[in-house]
Write a protein that binds this DNA or RNA. Structure first.
Lengths: 125, 125
DNA sequence: GGGAAAGCTTACGTTAACGTAAAGTTATTG
DNA sequence: CAATAACTTTACGTTAACGTAAGCTTTCCC
């Protein structure tokens, strides 16, 4: 038997998996970042929703705002006209520039942490 | 003549150099992140203040809170007893772990941007 | 089948990180 | 030497990103 891949999730399952509250997940929906299906009242999340959530949280770890993550999610949907796509391309370049800057910042900060650690170890002797 | 190194700055000079408002700089002081000297009422910033500000802003670009940056600044001052220094060491390790995670996140996100760009370019043909 | 667990909506509360405005005091400069 | 630019304090306002609580419905489990 091939292992059946899970294709839908409840809000609680996602909350546990990604260690956020259900409130947070519903908030992201209010903000238009997630669009779960419904069975009656109950939300049902697809693999796409799950991916979007992953993307949002990764963005958060990098200090992105939800507005920025919203743009990232849009980059996953190629449902746009020429003008919109060119706008997307511009945003992609912006993000890349930001990531490059962050890489530089991380390098510098790692060095500084190294030095700070040295000073700490020194002063413990 | 040897070039004279600047050793003090006004709030306006720092604001221009780092592209923040004076309000922001004063706010950081309220929060205990900067401790400028005074000539009369007027604030005078030292090289150390300038370094701290740089550190805060670098932290911001990486999504650090001011509380976290405060800790980073403390790592620059070795004026602590044994217990405090060991606490510092622990925080240094935490930060390093976070930076490592951020590096991973950046790598993934760069790949995703590459793919998104490909899709955009495709749909423009 | 009855109670706990999970889900739902609505709505007000909270915190961080400044913005903005008012009103006054020094510094600079044509 | 006057005006304008730069600085000051005090204080209320704002936005993002949820937290928290109340009250109700649905689902699961023994």
């Amino acid at each position: 038997m091939a292992a059946k891949k899970k294709t839908s999730w409840s809000i609680g399952e996602l909350a546990r998996e990604f260690d956020v509250t259900t409130r947070t997940i519903r908030f992201y929906e209010d903000e238009g970042l997630l669009e779960p299906a419904r069975r009656g009242q109950t939300r049902i999340y697809s693999a796409a929703d799950r991916t979007a959530l992953k993307l949002i949280l990764r963005g958060k770890r990098l200090g992105f705002s939800l507005a920025e993550s919203r743009q990232l999610i849009q980059m996953y949907n190629p449902d746009a006209n020429r003008a919109q796509i060119e706008a997307l391309l511009a945003k992609i370049h912006e993000r890349r520039a930001q990531l490059t800057q962050q890489l530089r910042d991380i390098e510098v900060m790692q060095l500084e942490l190294d030095e700070a650690e040295q000073r700490c170890l020194e002063s413990l002797k």
